[in-house]
Nucleic acid binder design. Structure first.
Lengths: 187, 187
DNA sequence: TCCAGACTGTAGCAACCATTACATTTCTCA
DNA sequence: TGAGAAATGTAATGGTTGCTACAGTCTGGA
């Protein structure tokens, strides 16, 4: 029984890389087996079904993301404009771009497909919002709204400018300016 | 030759409705044929290939959207906060929600799939940004950035809160407040 | 050593996919 | 009315999909 679980974990790790690279298309069992160095037969031995496999890998990815985010940002409170600034730098980096693209994939699936993707996407989203809200140095009543605004602005770039990172720059800079202005007024 | 073109246009109309309803999944030729009241054989008679069919329907949808947007907003200049306010009301309405969800689908496909979806998505995006930029009563240098910011904020809600419309409300209201504050400062 | 259970390979299922070859019907125009 | 073209149906192609039945190998404990 233990070897099964070990292999399962190993497969999850390998597929994590693959999913971040290529997203939620290209998810045929035979293809995934090839990537993971096994057979489709074995994948369905380690996992109950393809859906369970997907859910396992995606939640594993979500965990890894929040870990590296807290590592990157620390736990001290920051003003909204600095948070957005740091987040935008990260979003453009090769390390984080795959996560954002995968998240976009997931959101698209969540809007249509079965409850599987929806619940995973919601879980990731609220985790992300909560994390950022706890980081923002703003009045309690505004935390969640500001966090959602910042995240939405960054995600929106993905929708608005597919395949590019350059064109969204000005919009983000504008929002940074707005947030900074607000901080000054309130101070 | 004329009947072929007539049928082609009719099929595009019928599939427009279907795509807005169900997005970019469920696009098997046999299923689309059923929706359009024909056979798969005939679809490939009216269109060169499935890709050409998709491209035709999607660009038709894009045209319809920009038409109803200009009808809704008119051509007089508006302040950024009122534009966002009106856009958000529209985004929540049953009439426009399907467009936004389809756009999200398209953006997700554009990030991975072939050049087909990418070019269509880019075309729609720039069309939308240009339209909004021409509507904004702000200095010329800021038009595009503000337009992109507003659109990104609205689109971002889709990514951030899949399946919901309620939770994004506060973030949008916050951005409206920020934009209004900026207008006053500049005046 | 032997046996039960964990593990794994082979081969196949039925359903779907986009596309095409071929035959047939229907229409148009001379 | 008859010929040629346009329009449509039938049926098949070779491919993929998630999943499974069956048989075999391997391994740890008695």
């Amino acid at each position: 029984m233990s070897k099964k679980l070990d292999k399962r974990a190993e497969v999850i790790d390998l597929l994590t890389v693959h999913f971040l690279d290529t997203g939620l298309s290209d998810t045929g069992l035979r293809r995934l087996a090839e990537v993971a160095g096994t057979s489709d037969r074995m994948l369905l031995y380690y996992f109950e079904s393809k859906d369970e496999l997907l859910a396992a890998v995606l939640t594993h990815i979500a965990g890894g993301l929040s870990a590296s985010l807290t590592q990157l940002f620390g736990t001290t409170l920051l003003s909204p404009d600095t948070v957005l600034e740091k987040l935008w730098v990260a979003a453009k980096s090769d390390g984080f771009k795959p996560y954002l693209r995968l998240w976009l994939d997931l959101a698209a699936h969540a809007n249509r497909g079965g409850p599987l993707f929806l619940s995973i996407a919601q879980q990731i989203s609220t985790g992300w919002i909560d994390w950022m809200a706890s980081l923002l140095d703003v009045p309690e009543a505004n935390k969640e709204a500001t966090a959602a605004l910042i995240l939405a602005a960054v995600d929106g770039q993905l929708v608005l400018f597919p395949g590019e990172t350059k064109r969204g720059e000005h919009a983000i800079l504008q929002l940074i300016a707005l947030l900074r202005m607000q901080s000054k007024v309130q101070a």
